[in-house]
Design a protein around this nucleic acid. Structure first.
Lengths: 232, 232
DNA sequence: CAAATAGTGTCTGTAAGACACTATCCC
DNA sequence: GGGATAGTGTCTTACAGACACTATTTG
């Protein structure tokens, strides 16, 4: 008698008696693409190349995902999928939602746990495999499989909520940055312009000011700041 | 060749090649227990009797839960578990979080998707089976298995957030109610007293006023209100 | 009338939003 | 100086919080 069969639930059924779903993870790995050529900074998302499907001629693009392996946590699976599919080392995946429509995947019964992860653009560009991945700005104009569009919507909403509440919860900026740098990131996340004086006053109490100023830029040098040390 | 085996993922593995976790749902079914005997109204949660475990002498209590059956959605499983274990017809279960520690269940590899559902006290008392269930006020002083304590914490946080933003998102009150009724519910959810004048002014714009007053109470009769019709 | 509860007038402190001004760099 | 960007003084508006008052019922 196996260990599993020895424990039965209240209905008298062993775990093995029920068909089990496959469990997958799909990740919206978001970043902020820096301003360039007069285009301001904007939210971007990592997509991976997807092999041609039976009904399609050309390969498509999708969020990186994988099936959960035995003994693995969801966060482990997210990090593994980012590593295998994109060459990227993820940070701290956050759960967003479980997509559970029994018909959502042609291949069978697959639950997908959607995740959000965030990586600064330079790190993402330094790590990702450019032949199999791309970083596209939002909003996305591509056709994506499964519930991937819904996942992205959830991810954007979560990210906006977090950045509304804190200066840089996901470390999109380096160790030291100016208020203008921070504002650029917030405008990209929020998708709208933010007034500079109000923004400054909202953020300044949550930042650690450094005894230095930014160099090599036009205009009056700006004070540098750092994220608050944990547990002030 | 089965249909599942015909579709292989990018690593060349069929769905069936991976061990699959069992997937369970656990539900914090919350309510507001009305004031009685000088005790003000308070948040309560439904617990179900749990058979004695191998290492324990007496039966314990736990959140209602069940394993996900084939072809079922998570919300279906939540409603089924509430029905089977408590005789309660659930409403609109909301996902909270997936608990995924591979070691969290003795019986094997079990993922649990925690849910929140809310039911008005009179309905809950009218439906539930009193021999196998109880409604206990928060905070809970019982020992609960698995991650059930963490689930309750998440559920309370979610509920507080929702009631901070809206008058009665889960329909804890009847069709018509006074501002005092509403404040009693909010105080139970928030776990603190709320000032009556401020509360009134915060809520009144989000309520539909009815052309009637409450009867059969002491003092000046209070105006009756209803939840806003969807899409004002 | 008193007790009890509903509802309002109004003051205060805080903070967001907005405008305009000053400050300090590079060229 | 001129251009550019950083940073601040300050006004307006809104609103939460609080207190005290008025209003309307029952007994």
């Amino acid at each position: 008698m196996t260990r599993e069969a020895a424990f039965r639930d209240e209905a008298g059924c062993a775990l093995a008696d029920y068909p089990r779903p496959s469990v997958a993870v799909d990740t919206a790995l978001m970043t902020v693409i820096p301003a360039a050529d007069g285009v301001s900074a904007q939210l971007g998302i990592l997509l991976v190349r997807r092999p041609p499907q039976p009904a399609e001629a050309r390969p498509g693009w999708a969020l990186p995902g994988t099936f959960l392996h035995g003994g693995e946590t969801l966060a482990d699976a997210v990090r593994r999928s980012l590593d295998e599919k994109a060459g990227v080392t993820g940070r701290e995946p956050q759960q967003l939602h479980v997509f559970d429509d029994p018909q959502r995947d042609d291949r069978g019964w697959v639950l997908s746990v959607a995740h959000l992860d965030v990586l600064a653009f330079p790190e993402l560009e330094g790590l990702r495999d450019p032949t199999s991945t791309r970083v596209v700005p939002l909003p996305i104009r591509l056709r994506l499989p499964y519930d991937h569009f819904a996942i992205i919507e959830l991810a954007i909403g979560r990210l906006r909520g977090e950045y509304r509440a804190h200066p840089d919860p996901h470390g999109l900026l380096r160790d030291s940055f100016t208020i203008a740098d921070l504002r650029e990131v917030h405008e990209a996340v929020a998708g709208c312009v933010l007034q500079k004086d109000t923004f400054r006053r909202l953020m300044i109490d949550e930042l650690e000011s450094l005894p230095a100023a930014a160099e090599g830029r036009r205009g009056r040098p700006a004070q540098l700041f750092a994220r608050r040390r944990p547990e002030t």
